[in-house]
């Protein structure tokens, strides 16, 4: 294995929103990520796909240290992600994350969900945090539900709130971990539309999803994973029409009818 050298010049790393070099993640004897190299430029939209158990979620969860990587280097906007609280916090302030199961705080109203982090982590006053929250809830077309509790909303609405909540922290990189997988089919569209609206703002997005239509339409690049490795990366047009690897061809055969 090549030894990885630390970057000498910050100018080079700053070009990238994300740089992963030879990242490994192990659970006991099981290796979930094997020598993952991935660079994402600022403003780029990446869709990560692959069969279940291929390490997609693990990869995206390592980026903001929800999972701790065992080996290799991760830089987010030039900040090296190490295992100390300070560097973890710095990286998390650059990133926002949307989860498959929404993970809204069920005991708080929609508005409280959105102001908790800006008030406690950014030190915003309640008034400023609520202003920011209302603006973002407006953007995901859900401002009229601000006083409700998550359980009173549909899955699609909850996921849009989760997106607004993440945006309230003004992240530079958005991480989506199968954002539509837990939704009823008729609610998938509203969430994908919300995500597409972010694309217009030049937000860097890394998205694990099975929505191949979304990948075709929005992604700059599709990253295909299998068994913890990145097998293939290509623009969507090329990936869907002429996949290079046998495994990607097999995967596409399975999901596209």
């Amino acid at each position: 294995m090549n030894s990885v050298t630390r970057p000498e010049s910050p100018v080079i790393t700053d070009r990238y929103a994300l740089r992963m070099e030879a990242v490994y993640k192990r659970y006991g004897d099981f290796t979930a990520l094997t020598e993952v190299d991935l660079t994402v430029e600022k403003g780029e939209r990446i869709v990560i796909c692959g069969p279940s158990g291929s390490g997609k979620s693990t990869l995206i969860r390592c980026i903001n240290h929800i999972e701790k990587h065992d080996d290799g280097l991760i830089f987010v906007n030039g900040i090296e992600l190490q295992h100390d609280a300070r560097s973890i916090d710095r990286v998390r302030r650059e990133t926002g994350m949307v989860f498959q199961s929404f993970n809204l705080f069920p005991h708080m109203t929609i508005l409280e969900n959105c102001v908790l982090a800006p008030m406690s982590a950014h030190g915003l006053s309640r008034k400023d945090a609520e202003l920011r929250a209302h603006a973002l809830l407006e953007r995901v077309h859900i401002a009229d539900q601000a006083g409700k509790f998550p359980a009173q909303l549909s899955g699609g609405q909850q996921q849009r709130v989760a997106i607004a909540r993440a945006l309230c922290m003004q992240p530079k990189v958005m991480l989506f971990d199968e954002p539509t997988s837990a939704l009823d089919p008729e609610m998938v569209k509203e969430v994908l539309e919300t995500m597409k609206a972010l694309v217009g703002d030049g937000m860097t997005m890394i998205c694990v999803t099975h929505e191949m239509g979304f990948a075709r339409e929005v992604a700059d690049r599709v990253v295909f994973m299998d068994k913890g490795r990145i097998i293939e990366q290509a623009p969507p047009e090329q990936f869907f029409t002429a996949p290079q690897s046998e495994r990607a061809r097999h995967f596409l055969d399975q999901i596209i009818h």
């Binding site: 994350m97 989860f99 705080f105 982090a117 406690s120 993440a166």
Partner: peptide, 22 residues
Amino acid sequence: PQGQREAAWALSVPRRTIFWRV
């Protein structure tokens, strides 16, 4: 659920606030 902690981490909510509020 573990997802509650993870969501709070991802939002950079300070540890104390995670304990008391989440």
